[in-house]
Amino acid sequence: MERKEYSAGAVKLSFWFIEFRKVVELLHEGKNAEQIKSLALNENLFAAPTTLRANQIYHTVTGRIRALDESFIPLFTRSDLATQKLFALIAAMAYDTLFFDFVYEVIREKMILGTYEFSDSDVRVFFKDKQQQNEKVAGWTDATLVRLGRCYKTMLYEAGIIDKAKTARKILRPILDPDLVRWLEQNNMGAYVKALAGVR
């Protein structure tokens, strides 16, 4: 599992599940990255408001897909919707190390403790810890950290991991498909199983 440098880039990004699924399906049909990029930019594959946004969605979604071993593609196409959303979440976590750490250190810990909810103060504590551990994060503004926390909550909500409450968010422990668990373990991604299943 490759650990990338921490990034606040997620403030500009979304979960983009529908776009993720479209690209995976096109890859499954045999299209290559260049053909998909052409569809995204010339035929507005993602129904994006601008070419700039289409390009951003294309780069983010393909980056997330490349963060996983391509052997996930046939498994994704035959999985149910909930499992497909988990694949998209795992890809987002693999693409963004700080987001992975958030899920592993905040969501997983809450499930292990059996509290099954987290609040904005938990998000603040997570970022405060990271600022003490990492010079790059220490340089980010409070506004950036608030936006990053909001982005993480939105992605977890859209993946079906948390509810949309205004105050404390409930954590909805996902039911992991055995094929997904097996695939993660075979690809040295056992930490993702622990993160999503809430186990030590």
Score class of each variant (00 low, 15 high):
residue 165 A to G: 08
residue 143 A to C: 05
residue 94 A to Y: 02
residue 81 L to A: 12
residue 188 N to T: 11
residue 185 E to P: 05
residue 73 I to R: 00
residue 96 D to V: 02
residue 82 A to H: 12
residue 137 V to N: 00
residue 23 V to K: 04
residue 122 D to F: 01
residue 120 D to R: 13
residue 141 T to V: 03
residue 20 F to I: 08
residue 176 L to Q: 07
residue 106 V to L: 03
residue 131 Q to C: 11
residue 200 R to G: 06
residue 1 M to P: 10
residue 47 A to G: 15
residue 195 A to Y: 01
residue 97 T to Y: 14
residue 3 R to K: 13
residue 15 F to W: 08
residue 17 F to Q: 10
residue 136 K to D: 08
residue 132 Q to K: 14
residue 15 F to Y: 13
residue 104 Y to G: 00
residue 70 E to V: 08
residue 131 Q to G: 10
residue 68 L to V: 08
residue 29 E to F: 14
residue 50 T to H: 09
residue 110 K to M: 01
residue 40 A to H: 05
residue 115 T to N: 05
residue 122 D to A: 05
residue 80 D to R: 10
residue 106 V to G: 01
residue 71 S to P: 01
residue 109 E to M: 06
residue 99 F to A: 01
residue 119 S to F: 08
residue 182 R to Q: 15
residue 76 F to H: 03
residue 131 Q to K: 15
residue 139 G to C: 06
residue 97 T to P: 02
residue 46 F to N: 04
residue 118 F to A: 00
residue 168 A to P: 01
residue 14 S to M: 11
residue 129 D to R: 15
residue 128 K to A: 14
residue 75 L to S: 03
residue 61 V to Q: 02
residue 34 E to V: 12
residue 129 D to Q: 14
residue 126 F to V: 03
residue 17 F to H: 13
residue 74 P to G: 05
residue 7 S to E: 09
residue 53 R to L: 10
residue 80 D to S: 09
residue 130 K to Y: 04
residue 174 P to M: 09
residue 189 M to C: 11
residue 169 R to H: 11
residue 199 V to N: 08
